[in-house]
């Protein structure tokens, strides 16, 4: 038989004319390298995110040249900026409209915790209304930090089990946030 090699963190058995590997790994690699981000940019962190999109930093190198401004076709929600309480239901609806699998990245202090805006009108962290996978600290974070956050999302996508989104734990998570789901919880 062929020998086991690791290419791009994918464990595979290569031989003349064929390659054997796990479906999880292939799909994980495909997902991770073609994330379609939906930028939900409300303030200054959004500007840093735009810099991250620009040729200087170029997140297209990570397989994300297409920003999706429709939640239906997006699988990474990037929340960059202050979310007011009045905007919270809108953000939640955007999240609910995204189809599985989906990841959420909170960019900057405001999206992560409310930041300096400890006030009656500002949501004290988006994780109060939707589950967040990766937090990027900073006020505002530099584009390099945003890219680091994106690479962390890629690592999650790459190593996530294909069954994770059907697991009782995931259902429990969504139920905690009172987000509608049709997971059986097997």
């Amino acid at each position: 038989m062929g020998k086991v090699t690791e290419t791009g963190q994918m464990e595979a058995i290569n031989y003349e004319g064929f390659q054997l590997t796990k479906l999880d790994t292939v799909i994980g690699a495909a997902r991770a390298n073609s994330l379609w981000p939906l930028p939900f940019a409300t303030s200054c962190c959004g500007i840093e995110y735009m810099a991250a999109m620009s040729p200087n930093y170029d997140i297209a190198r990570f397989g994300m040249e297409r920003m999706s401004f429709s939640p239906r076709q997006a699988d990474l929600l990037i929340i960059a900026g202050t979310i007011s309480k009045k905007l919270a239901p809108v953000l939640r609806q955007v999240y609910e409209q995204m189809s599985e699998p989906k990841w959420v990245m909170a960019v900057g202090a405001c999206a992560s915790s409310g930041g300096i805006f400890d006030t009656y009108s500002v949501l004290q962290g988006v994780d109060r209304i939707i589950p967040v996978d990766v937090y990027v600290p900073g006020c505002a974070p530099r584009p390099e930090q945003i890219i680091d956050g994106i690479m962390n999302v890629q690592a999650l996508a790459k190593h996530e089990s294909l069954r994770r989104r059907y697991s009782p734990e995931y259902k429990h998570l969504l139920d905690n946030y009172k987000i509608d789901n049709d997971i059986d919880g097997e």
Binding site: K85, K86, G114, T119, Y120, S121
Partner: peptide
């Protein structure tokens, strides 16, 4: 300007400005 569900008037001084 505030969310419809808000049940007080936030700039009255008996309420804290903080969340």
């Amino acid at each position: 300007l505030n969310q419809d569900s808000m049940d007080y008037f936030p700039l009255r001084k008996e309420y804290h400005v903080e969340d």
